[in-house]
């Protein structure tokens, strides 16, 4: 089975150097072959699970974090903003 690993890598935002494509393709195919071991099952329309529900939150304000705390792990910040390479718009 052909798997377009270049496309998957692009979607996953991971580099896949050309010289590694062949080896990775082989390894990936064996993993996919393993997970393909599934029975034919009747498929539901949606994946709703009405028997296992979550609690919702009341609309009540909780104080936000100090900006310094939110930015302490940011690789690059200027004037309270997070810096990223120029986005093309």
């Amino acid at each position: 089975m052909e798997i377009d690993v270049r496309r998957i890598a692009k979607l996953a935002m991971l580099k896949l150097p050309e010289e590694q494509v062949e080896a990775f393709e082989k390894e990936f195919a064996s993993i996919v072959a393993m997970v393909e071991h599934l029975p034919e099952l009747e498929s539901a329309d949606t994946l709703l699970e009405p028997d296992n529900q979550m609690h919702l939150r009341a609309d009540e304000i909780v104080p936000s974090y100090p900006r310094d705390a939110m930015l302490q792990n940011v690789p690059k910040a200027i004037a309270g903003c997070i810096v990223v390479p120029k986005t093309v718009e």
């Binding site: 690993v5 496309r7 998957i8 991971l14 390894e27 990936f28 997970v35 393909e36 599934l38 009747e42």
Partner: peptide, 24 residues
């Protein structure tokens, strides 16, 4: 490796065959 596998099983055209079946 796991990110690649996960991306693959959710990608367009494969979701039903892998992810949905696994959930079933």
């Amino acid at each position: 490796r796991r990110i690649m596998l996960g991306t693959y099983v959710l990608s367009s055209g494969y979701y039903d065959a892998y992810y949905k079946r696994a959930k079933m």
